[in-house]
Amino acid sequence: MSDIIFSDEESSVVVRNNEKEHRYEVSVAGQTAGHMGYRAIGDRRVLMHTVIYDAFRGRGLSSVLIKSILDFLRTHGSTVSNYCPVVDRFMRKNPEYVSLIDAKHSGTWVSP
């Protein structure tokens, strides 16, 4: 899988898959702004916790990070087990991503 999964030159936002650290990272103008930890189990990703650092809060970066990750996983045919309440809120607002939840291993996701 590719290192960069989202890049927007206009806003200088980049989302990367840091496979070595098992996390997706969002950066702004080259500075790491936050991350989401994950575990890879075959084609399934177990999403753990979203963190946006204080200096970068209030810019909508958690939504950019989560949307980029989910779009990337969808493109690669992956499913998701979710344990992150921020991802829960995002999916409830964007139900088009609910289909990515693994039916047998949903994590803490409960269908609305």
Rank of each mutant, 00 (worst) to 15 (best):
D3M: 08
I4Q: 06
S7C: 14
D8G: 06
E9P: 13
E9Y: 14
V14I: 11
N17R: 11
E19S: 11
E19C: 08
K20S: 08
R23I: 05
E25Y: 03
V26A: 00
A29S: 10
T32F: 02
G34T: 00
H35V: 04
M36W: 00
Y38P: 03
Y38F: 13
R39M: 14
R39I: 15
A40M: 12
I41M: 12
I41C: 04
I41T: 04
G42R: 02
R44C: 00
V46E: 09
L47M: 12
L47Q: 04
H49R: 13
H49T: 07
H49C: 07
T50Y: 00
V51D: 02
V51K: 08
I52N: 00
D54S: 15
A55G: 11
A55Y: 12
F56E: 05
R59S: 09
R59C: 07
G60S: 06
G60H: 02
G60R: 01
L61V: 03
S62A: 13
S62G: 06
S62L: 02
S62H: 03
V64L: 05
V64R: 00
V64N: 01
I66S: 03
D71V: 15
F72E: 07
L73F: 11
R74S: 12
R74E: 08
R74F: 15
T75D: 14
H76T: 08
G77L: 04
T79C: 07
T79P: 09
V80C: 09
C84K: 04
V87D: 01
M91F: 05
M91L: 10
R92K: 10
K93Y: 03
N94Y: 03
N94V: 13
P95T: 13
P95S: 12
E96D: 11
Y97P: 05
V98M: 13
V98Y: 10
L100H: 06
D102Y: 03
K104H: 06
S106G: 15
